[in-house]
Computed example of a mutant assay.
Amino acid sequence: MAINKPQKVLPKRIASIDALRGFDMIWILGAQGIFLALFSLTSWPLFNTLNAQMLHSPWHGITAYDVIFPLFIFLSGMSLGLSAKPLSAYDADKQSQLIRKPIKRLLILCLLGVVYNHGWGQGMPTDIEQVRFASVLARIGIAGFIATLIVWYCQHKLQYTLFIGLLLGYYVLLEFVSIGGFGAGNYTSTGALNIWFDQHLLPGATYQNALVDPEGVLSNIGSVTNALAGLFVGRYFIHQFKSNRPIILPLSIIGVICLCLGYGLSAVMPINKTLWTSTFALVTIGYSVLLLVMFYWLIDVLNFKRLALFFTVIGMNAIVVYLASSIVDWQYIANSLFGGVVAGSPSQWQGVVSVFCLVFVQWLCLYFLYKRNIFIKI
């Protein structure tokens, strides 16, 4: 006689996902400065090495700071995989409501991205040609929008085929296609195919007036694969969880395979964040999966709830965190509240104390929203 195990009920929110999103965003709050401050305090080479990881790679290669953005897109895709169904599964009225939502979200994120680009006390230029329309928020919106359409209208097998097709197709495009003297295997900052697309199809200005924008037109292809990978992992996560099957080991193997593929193929196609090459996508997917495994093990398995709370407070209002980093002078607020504490600290410790005060002020504001169940989502 076969005895079926009772099926687990997936919680409304998986604590480790919100916590990982918060961990991802804390480096945007200013925590990335802690390693430089610790190096100034101790002169230990380890902290200098870690501080170098808190900077974007100059062109080819990857640092820890380069993983922040792809991880956020991956987690957005995972949220989609945990909840989304084919559009045909809904009645006609519900379909009409659902279709409007991702379009509205895409437009709002694009608009907020322009606001973010021209924050930092500068304001938006009056000359439309000086406005930077490409942005991190717009890329999040585009990747999420395309992933949503794929979930709605494509069967699972086709979704996997599209994922592989995007990775391979993007490689073929950059490696073999030449337009206007750009491309055909040229991955430099002056000759990549992406430059032609950004110069001819991207309105307004590019980031720092460079030839190619890090959130430009063509590189959206690579970022969509990060969203799709998150979608697949989210769906797999549900299946394994409800079937009482192991999650940690299979996902760890998937993460390692992606890293091996990304690094292994980097001799053919360089790992490059600005171009968001297929190898960059694979490597960042690998790191994203392994970080998810680590947080799931710590928080949902070992039940480290205090760790979860600290990061969840940030992760539940991630868009607010990012947008506020451009339009709010957090350093001024931190100095106004804790400037005396910093000044009263031993001189060698002032840099470290200053970083903690900066992050703490922002965390307190987010905790205020969290305690009142105010979660701003788009």
Rank of each mutant, 00 (worst) to 15 (best):
W196I: 11
Q208A: 14
H200E: 09
Q199N: 10
A192N: 13
R306L: 10
L75G: 00
N194D: 14
R21H: 08
K8C: 03
V313R: 04
Y90C: 05
A192Q: 07
L46W: 13
E129K: 12
P250H: 07
M316W: 07
L358V: 07
M78T: 01
L298E: 01
L75F: 08
G344I: 00
L55Y: 14
L107I: 15
P214H: 01
K8I: 05
F375T: 10
Q7E: 13
G183I: 04
L261K: 07
I195V: 10
L290F: 03
L111V: 12
H60I: 06
G169Y: 11
P45D: 12
A229N: 00
W349C: 14
C260K: 00
W196D: 03
L38A: 10
L302E: 07
A89R: 12
F133S: 05
L109R: 05
P45Q: 11
P246F: 08
I376Y: 11
N209D: 15
T148W: 13
Q350S: 10
L337C: 07
R132M: 09
W44G: 04
T274Q: 11
I3R: 10
L10Y: 06
W120C: 01
V313Y: 03
G351C: 07
V289S: 03
C365G: 02
D213S: 09
L358G: 04
L282F: 09
G315L: 04
I378D: 02
R105V: 13
G262I: 04
A64F: 15
